[in-house]
Nucleic acid binder design. Sequence first.
DNA 1: TGTACATCAGTGAACGCGCGTTCACTGATGTAC
DNA 2: TGTACATCAGTGAACGCGCGTTCACTGATGTAC
Lengths: 215, 215
Amino acid sequence: MTTATPESSYHHGDLPSALLAAVGDIVIEKGAANVSLREAARRAGVSHSAPAHHFGDKDGMLAAFSHQGFDVLAAEVGAALEVVADEPPEVRIQAAGAAYVRFAAANPAHFDVMFRTGLGSVEEASHDEMKNTGAMDLLKELVGEMVVEGRVPAEHAEHFAVSLWASAHGLASLWVDGAIPHMFPGMTLDELLDAAFGEAMLMFRATSLGEGVTV
Amino acid sequence: MTTATPESSYHHGDLPSALLAAVGDIVIEKGAANVSLREAARRAGVSHSAPAHHFGDKDGMLAAFSHQGFDVLAAEVGAALEVVADEPPEVRIQAAGAAYVRFAAANPAHFDVMFRTGLGSVEEASHDEMKNTGAMDLLKELVGEMVVEGRVPAEHAEHFAVSLWASAHGLASLWVDGAIPHMFPGMTLDELLDAAFGEAMLMFRATSLGEGVTV
DNA sequence: TGTACATCAGTGAACGCGCGTTCACTGATGTAC
DNA sequence: TGTACATCAGTGAACGCGCGTTCACTGATGTAC
């Protein structure tokens, strides 16, 4: 049993991971805007020019952090779906939506960099990640199953999909930045997930879309 | 008729407004993280130390920009509600939600700074603005009317309110950062607002909340 | 109408700071023979 | 087992930059009398 921390070694062992962990800490403590190569290096206990070795430049480091988040998100949604693999599509949509919001709540720094970094920044890269992990395909596929089973009129499938995505994304955003706990103290995430993705709600959304009065 | 631009004058005329307009442009072009006092001053054609005169410091300038956004949001939601003042509460909720999303789509820079500046920044100030403009009170009041009319069980009122807020906020976020147009090209905002806040949808949400199967 | 003065708006030089990036380097590790 | 060498990981000095903030200043405007 060797000492767990090889602190006298010249090589770090797993510097990329340590740097990404540092990025997460910085985002939580000082906001995504204050992430810097030098600060991440400092926290990883390494010279300020070391990060460039692994990530090329600052954008590269943030992109790696974001990518890590998309991997975790995909894994967690996937795991949630395995549990309900044999259930009808509305139950699986419910599970996927809940996993999306829970991911955000559990990984606020990642969610922030992935989706909330703001206008003019790495947006397009994020959209591509979203496509590459197949998240959007998955949503469309689940909605597609509901169409096949006759539960969603084909012409409303896309609106249904976007509407679900927006519910999940809005819940995640407001929860992560503390707005919900601030305005409605004591409310739990489980209650909210149930209100937004409860089965009765999903079934109604699926069938009634487009039948409402025009705004 | 004098020349519209008093360019030789020492005093600007309305420098605060010009600076806030510059902030908006910077947010759109380079992201909220790249807003600086000096860049705003440059765009307003004024010395780099002028902004401090009006806003104190950088945080003050961003707070003023955010405040301006909350004012516009409150005005637009108010105007939308006047049109439907005599309608039942679910119609007014629909109108308010649509106004919220339309505000974001029309003022992406403001929406970004108000709500999406990220963890660790001016969050708490934003929550307070939200309270001060009475936006949250308004939502609670409208939902309260539905409770009084027996359309929402009192114990589900808060979940209903949050669920509506999340839908609006998610739609606004995904629309503003281009995710929806990117994933679902050709979709219009009106279609989405109808899907999310259509009257049938609202009525169902109001009555069915909490009756779904637990997640 | 004119003068004195206070107030306000904007200037420009100066400061110190943290940053991203480059580059020649050195320490450590692995591999071929 | 030992040696030579290539490759990789991290160092530290140096650069130039844009920034926020301060401060004594000056130009313009308004107000009291």
